[in-house]
Amino acid sequence: MNQMAGNYITEDGRKIGGVIMEMKHITLRFGGVVAIKDISFDIHEGEIRAIIGPNGAGKSSMLNVISGFYHPQEGEVWFHGAKRPPMKPYQVAEQGIARTFQNIALFDGMSVLDNIMTGRLTHMKTGILAQALWKGAAEREEVTNREVVEKIIDFLEIQHIRKTPVGRLPYGLKKRVELARALAAEPKLLLLDEPMAGMNVEEKEDMSRYILDTNDEFGTTIALIEHDMGVVMDLSDRVVVMDYGQKIGDGTPDEVRNNQQVIDAYLGVAHD
């Protein structure tokens, strides 16, 4: 594999494109705490990129920087070959970057269907006045959005709970609905913060399959954080390893697995 050339072919024969996102020398501090210390890495189009590391390593912070929730003190974020100015989360979402949260952030009062529909907001162009005056356009838009949402509901096999208020769902299904909402945005880049945390083995297998299928069927580029090393090794094309805010490894799962620094810092540490 030749990273520098940009395009490469994975072991399972998928074609990976050029760099879609590049983090350059990112440093993020919270008062005295350095959550991210001078980290650089890139994400290629079509790949599944994992970020791993022990608790408090700064993984979520990194995802928050990408999605505009945190703003680094130093460093640059490049997206689609252009340097990104500091952006609010909603602007990042409008650029085609969707995400899920480590602690699940859903609209508990809304049904599953409504939750997933909110994922379409960035695709709804018709303004208030147009909606009031020119029903046709708004209706056509609604139909298209519904079609996309239905496709995702089928894809993630959640037809049976479509009308259920999200607040009543068990944990594993909530995680799936959150993924559905992110997918509804038809993102160019999908960020998943511990999509399998707290799941049992069976649920983890399902989620792994959905992630792989998403990447496969829609060609979505995915960056994900995961604790379970087995899962990470199975899913990802390349892995960034963080520890105490620093990058201590970057490469294919095999390369990372055999990196002594990674073994010391991460693999030796027991995790839940």
């Binding site: 989360p89 909603y90 969707a98 609209f107 909110t118 208030i128």
Partner: peptide, 26 residues
């Protein structure tokens, strides 16, 4: 119930963080 802005409004009322992530400007 039926407009984009209304939906966004309900979303913000429910969960700020989630609303931000789906592209709503608070």
């Amino acid at each position: 119930q039926y407009t984009k802005q209304g939906r966004a409004l309900r979303a913000v009322a429910d969960d700020h963080q989630a609303a931000l992530s789906v592209g709503i400007s608070l």
